[in-house]
């Protein structure tokens, strides 16, 4: 397992906390409702531990938007909802603009845009705080069954350790639970920790 200092882990949690807060503000604007957040959990896991850790039994059918970010380090960011909740989010987003019977036609594209906005909000906060810049890929949307989900893809092949930042989102009145995940390879983890050290040094900490 990777050696990560207590201060580095704390700084990571705080930086993601700010990023996720920005993301929640964006989601709140989209669904026109308050979004509750859990405090981000920063975990270092082996790939085989990730799937079991992430998804409880109520998330059997998943709606998932992923986006790759490349810069001083590379990360795969994911936004995960229960499949049935995706349409609820889209209906809030397109409120009154699309007839309800045609809503499902927009689901894939609208969820891509929701993921794009939320994941970028979080990554942008990370970039700004660390004083770095990322290029983002286009968002990719898919459905998946929990038991067959190839969550890690290429990252799994390269990475004996995964940094997982797990956050639970809950939209009031709607009981929509979601998760945001950030997967990094070991190489990228080293680069991230270097950025964290520089961030701490700029703050006069560490």
């Amino acid at each position: 397992m990777h050696e990560v200092g207590e201060l580095q882990r704390d700084a990571l949690a705080e930086i993601f906390n700010i990023g996720v807060g920005r993301a929640a503000a964006s989601l709140s604007q989209i669904v026109r409702d308050e979004v509750e957040l859990s405090a981000p959990q920063v975990l270092f896991l082996k790939p085989e531990e990730v799937r079991a850790r992430l998804f409880s039994s109520e998330l059997d059918r998943l709606s998932l938007v992923s986006q790759d970010f490349n810069g001083p380090f590379d990360a795969r960011a994911m936004l995960v909802f229960q499949e049935k909740n995706a349409l609820v989010i889209v209906s809030h987003m397109l409120d009154g603009m699309v007839d309800p019977e045609h809503l499902s036609e927009f689901e894939q594209e609208a969820m891509c845009e929701v993921g794009n906005i939320i994941l970028n909000a979080c990554i942008s906060a990370l970039a700004d705080l660390l004083g770095i810049a990322f290029e983002g890929s286009l968002p990719h949307y898919r459905y998946a069954e929990r038991r067959t989900l190839d969550l890690l893809g290429e990252v799994q092949e390269q990475a004996p350790v995964i940094l997982l930042v797990q956050v639970d989102l809950r939209i009031r009145k709607q009981s929509i639970d979601g998760h945001m995940l950030f997967l990094l390879s070991v190489t990228s983890l080293h680069a991230l920790l270097d950025s964290i050290d520089r961030f701490l040094a700029r703050q006069g900490i560490g």
């Binding site: 920005r22 845009e113 794009n116 906005i117 970028n120 909000a121 990554i123 942008s124 970039a127 700004d128 810049a133 990322f134 983002g136």
Partner: peptide
């Protein structure tokens, strides 16, 4: 008009 709200 973008979701990429990075300072850069």
């Amino acid at each position: 008009c973008t979701a990429n709200v990075q300072d850069s």
